[in-house]
Amino acid sequence: MFELRRLRLLHELSLRGTLAAVADALSYSPSTISQQLALLEKEAGVALLAPDGRRVRLTEHGRVLAAHAARALDLDERARGELESLAPGLAPVRVAVMQTATLALLPTALALLGERAPGLRVELVQLPPERGLFELTARGVDLVIAEQYPGHTRAHVEGLEREVLGTDPIRLAVAPADAARTLADLRGRAWAMEPAGTAARDWAVQQCRAAGFEPDVRFELADLTAHARLVATGHAVAVLPDLLWAGAPAPVRLLDLPQHPAREVFLALRDASRDRAGIAEVRRALRDAFAATGRTAGP
């Protein structure tokens, strides 16, 4: 019989690519990972790993077993969810959140959970959506709050499901005394944008190009509150989502973009964990927290 913990290590290696990355994600030493995978090879009776320079790669047998490992982990999670539904105890729920959700949704959601499920332990980690969705697949987290920009559809991954919380308008942000009226007026200005490779950055650049110019990105920061501060003090302009101002007046002047675009804010979870009672409670609290912001809620 295969040992499930070792199957998970093989699954993690298939996703993360290196023993060091698996060790870092699971808080093990690389030597421990190697030893456990060597034992898994003995259980399988075939070579699962092959040298690849200074790293290792999965053999054909390794890839086959990694795919079965993913299914075994799903079955384990479904079984735990069904047991949890029969017993009142709530297992901890680990949530990956993007920054604007941390600011606008989490305080309300946690207050609701304190009333509805006081025994539930919720663990939060702030991650950009791209990394959060990867960690969801890798079982590093149980839920992800992510975003999708107009015309930039995120890939659908087998075994994951989504629930749309609602939409969030995106606007131009300029200093309070700035005379700009349209996106075209911001040609040649210093811009604050999220790091290259993120959906938010790609979308913002495309808006500038559609207006006839290439943005001068001088401030590349993941922290949107830093964007807002740079804009408010006249050092930059930016495109920012309305959730950033939830519950407080914006310290900048906001201008509508053409066609009034809005991003879609959604929850993602593994199909196998859908029936976990704690996850259901967190989902309900996040729905209610989003509705409380006054933005358009999802279906």
Score class of each variant (00 low, 15 high):
E115I: 01
L103F: 10
R116D: 05
R63Y: 01
R78L: 13
V64A: 15
A109Q: 09
A72Y: 08
L86V: 12
L83M: 13
A96G: 13
L86C: 10
G81M: 06
P118C: 07
R57C: 10
L58C: 10
R116C: 02
G53Q: 01
V95T: 14
A101H: 09
R121H: 11
A72L: 09
V64M: 13
A69P: 08
V93Q: 06
A79G: 11
R57N: 02
V56P: 00
A79W: 04
T59F: 01
V56F: 06
A50L: 08
L106D: 07
L86M: 12
L103W: 05
E115S: 06
A50N: 01
E115V: 11
A109R: 05
L105K: 08
R55V: 09
P88S: 11
R71E: 12
L120C: 09
P51W: 01
E115P: 03
G62I: 00
L124K: 06
R57V: 07
T59I: 02
D52Y: 01
V97Q: 08
T102S: 15
R55P: 07
E82D: 05
R55G: 12
H61M: 07
V56E: 04
A111C: 00
G81R: 05
L110S: 14
R121P: 04
G62C: 05
V95A: 06
A70N: 12
R57I: 07
H68R: 14
A70T: 10
H61N: 12
S85C: 08
H68A: 15
L49N: 05
L86R: 14
Q99L: 11
R63S: 04
R80G: 15
A70R: 15
L106P: 11
V56D: 01
R63P: 01
D76A: 15
T100W: 00
R78N: 07
A109H: 08
P88H: 08
L124E: 05
E77S: 14
A117D: 05
E60V: 14
R71K: 14
G62Q: 07
R54I: 15
L120F: 00
R78F: 08
R54M: 11
L112D: 02
L58M: 13
H68W: 05
P88T: 07
A69Y: 00
V95Y: 03
A66Y: 00
A70Q: 13
L113G: 07
A101G: 15
E60I: 07
E60H: 11
V56A: 12
D76I: 03
A79S: 10
L124S: 02
T59H: 02
P107R: 09
G119W: 00
S85M: 09
G119T: 14
L65Q: 03
S85P: 03
R121N: 06
M98I: 12
Q99H: 12
V93F: 04
V64E: 15
S85R: 15
L73R: 09
H68V: 06
P118Q: 12
G53V: 01
T108C: 04
L124N: 09
H68I: 05
L75E: 14
E84I: 03
A69M: 04
Q99M: 14
P88W: 03
L110E: 08
E84L: 02
